[in-house]
């Protein structure tokens, strides 16, 4: 019972945050509502028993990636989004269509999927077990992602460096 109540509360916060992200016109408000979504998702992970994933969700997503977004918004001093007139067809058919589609999917999932119930903390994800999997069974993907991160770092440095500073470094040898 408590599980269901907590799920509903934090699920509602998630959905409210996601909708707020769409409605808000200023990027910093969108960013903050995304942080709220991520924090309440971390609680959902805790409900499912995935404690380590929940902690990493807060530290990496809310604490690092979103800080980067806020940082860029501050750096570029991004203002309010310009209004552009959308096509009328999209408003007339898109929104009802999307609502109908998502209701259909939700209805099918809830009534016909035949899934059992998940109890609170069903699958504890202790850090020890996760490390065992990550460094034994998934070692190769793990190493490949480290290469990916390295490439991303180099790409970010090259892209964000001012062209003049690269020229200057070339001249200096």
């Amino acid at each position: 019972m408590l599980h269901l109540v907590l799920f509903l509360i934090f699920g509602a916060i998630c959905v409210a945050g996601a909708v707020n992200l769409l409605v808000q016109r200023h990027p910093i408000n969108s960013a903050l509502s995304l942080v709220a979504v991520m924090a309440s998702l971390a609680v959902e992970y805790l409900l499912l028993g995935a404690e380590f994933v929940a902690a990493v969700q807060v530290i990496v997503y809310a604490g690092a990636i979103m800080v980067l977004f806020v940082f860029v918004i501050m750096l570029l001093n991004a203002g309010e989004e310009a209004r552009t007139g959308g096509s009328r067809v999209a408003i007339l058919f898109g929104i009802p269509g999307m609502l109908a589609g998502s209701l259909l999917v939700a209805w099918v999932l809830i009534t016909h999927s035949g899934t059992q119930e998940v109890s609170a903390g069903a699958l504890p994800g202790p850090p020890r077990e996760i490390a065992n999997l990550l460094f034994h069974d998934f070692l190769l993907p793990f190493e490949v992602t480290s290469v990916l991160v390295l490439i991303a770092i180099m790409g970010a440095v090259v892209l964000a460096a001012r062209p003049e500073s690269i020229e200057q470094q070339k001249r200096e040898g």
Binding site: V58, A64, M74
Partner: peptide, 11 residues
């Protein structure tokens, strides 16, 4: 995790 969120207040 909580200290990493603390940066939002300052920013």
């Amino acid at each position: 995790g909580i200290t990493s969120l603390g940066v939002y207040g300052v920013a």
